[in-house]
């Protein structure tokens, strides 16, 4: 049980930027659907073509922090029984989490725009 003393006056989306890559990937993963820890690791690995494979330690450290910040919550609703793994906890993105993810995307795309304007564009193959 965590004593979450800052819930009443939560942080604004912008104040949490820039996001750590791990946090961003977890948010993206949970934006699709509620997932348990291992599912997040597999999803991030799949999405990045195996480039990023989160370790259990890094994943849960991020999850703990994201829970405290209110970006995600632990959800009580479980998938259909045949898909459910009772030992596992499922996480769901919160509206704040979605807002933060969007804000990060905006930040990244404006950076890319800026880079393009300066003629710094990656060579496409």
């Amino acid at each position: 049980m965590h004593i979450i003393w800052h819930m009443s006056e939560g942080p604004s989306a912008e104040s949490l930027l820039p996001l750590q890559p791990t946090t961003f990937h977890i948010l993206l993963s949970l934006a699709e659907e509620d997932r348990h820890g291992y599912a997040i690791i597999l999803d991030v690995a799949r999405r990045t073509g195996g480039k990023i494979r989160l370790s259990a330690g890094t994943l849960y450290r991020s999850i703990q922090r994201m829970l405290e910040l209110g970006l995600i919550i632990e959800t009580k609703s479980r998938p259909i029984p045949e898909m459910d793994d009772e030992r596992r906890r499922y996480y769901r993105i919160t509206p704040l989490g979605t807002a933060v993810a969007k804000a990060e995307v905006n930040r990244l795309s404006s950076l890319v725009k800026m880079a393009r304007a300066c003629g710094v564009t990656p060579r496409t193959t």
Binding site: G37, A56, Y60, R87, R88, R89
Partner: peptide
């Protein structure tokens, strides 16, 4: 406290790996 919270799941993930 952290171990109590996440230890079991971390062990599960490590076993899969």
């Amino acid at each position: 406290s952290y171990r109590t919270e996440y230890g079991a799941e971390m062990t599960g993930i490590f076993a899969q790996e």
